[in-house]
Simulated scan of single mutants.
Amino acid sequence: MINIKNDKVIKAFGRRLRDLRISNGLSQEQLANMAEIPLSQVGRIERGEVNPTLSTISVLATALNIQIIDLFLI
């Protein structure tokens, strides 16, 4: 099985999520609660440790009141 993972992109996505969260004045815990995902998952995404699913990206965008594409403008 081939493991395809672009760490550079995943880390950039995490930085973008963190920047948007902070600019909205939210803690990781608040964002996790709003998106109904585990707090630890928000941290792992922001640190670029995991490759989030499309459904997770969707709930994060909804919680931040932005369009999904805004999470990819890095």
Score class of each variant (00 low, 15 high):
P38A: 08
T62V: 09
R47M: 13
I74K: 15
R15P: 00
Q67R: 13
P38K: 00
N24F: 10
S58H: 11
M34C: 06
V42K: 06
N33I: 11
N51D: 15
V50M: 11
L73T: 13
I10T: 04
P52Q: 14
I57V: 15
I4P: 01
L64G: 08
S27M: 06
G14N: 04
S55F: 12
I69H: 10
N6L: 01
Q41E: 06
V9Y: 01
L60F: 09
D7K: 00
A12S: 11
F13M: 07
L39A: 06
T62G: 03
V59H: 03
A12V: 01
L20C: 04
G43P: 06
I45Q: 11
V50K: 07
L20V: 04
G25K: 05
G43H: 05
R44Y: 14
I4H: 02
A32W: 02
L20N: 04
L20R: 03
F72L: 15
S23P: 01
T56Y: 09
V42I: 15
M34F: 13
I69W: 12
I57H: 12
R44Q: 15
E36M: 11
F13T: 02
N3Q: 14
P38Q: 00
I57Y: 11
P52D: 13
D19S: 09
N24A: 11
R21D: 06
N51Y: 12
T56I: 15
I66E: 05
I69V: 13
V42W: 09
A32R: 02
E36P: 01
L17S: 05
L54P: 04
V59W: 02
T53G: 14
I66H: 05
R16A: 02
E36A: 11
A61L: 06
Q41H: 08
N33D: 14
E29N: 09
A35E: 04
L17C: 09
S58D: 08
L31S: 08
A63D: 08
L31F: 12
R44E: 14
I10A: 01
A63P: 03
N24I: 00
R18V: 04
I57G: 10
A35V: 05
A63V: 06
I22G: 01
T53Y: 12
K5V: 11
I57L: 15
G43R: 10
L39D: 07
L73K: 15
R18Y: 07
N24E: 08
D19E: 12
M34H: 06
L54T: 12
M1V: 10
F72E: 13
I37T: 02
N51F: 15
M34N: 12
T56M: 11
D7I: 00
A63T: 07
I2S: 13
V59M: 02
L54K: 08
S23W: 00
E29H: 10
I57C: 15
R44M: 14
T62D: 08
I37P: 01
L26I: 04
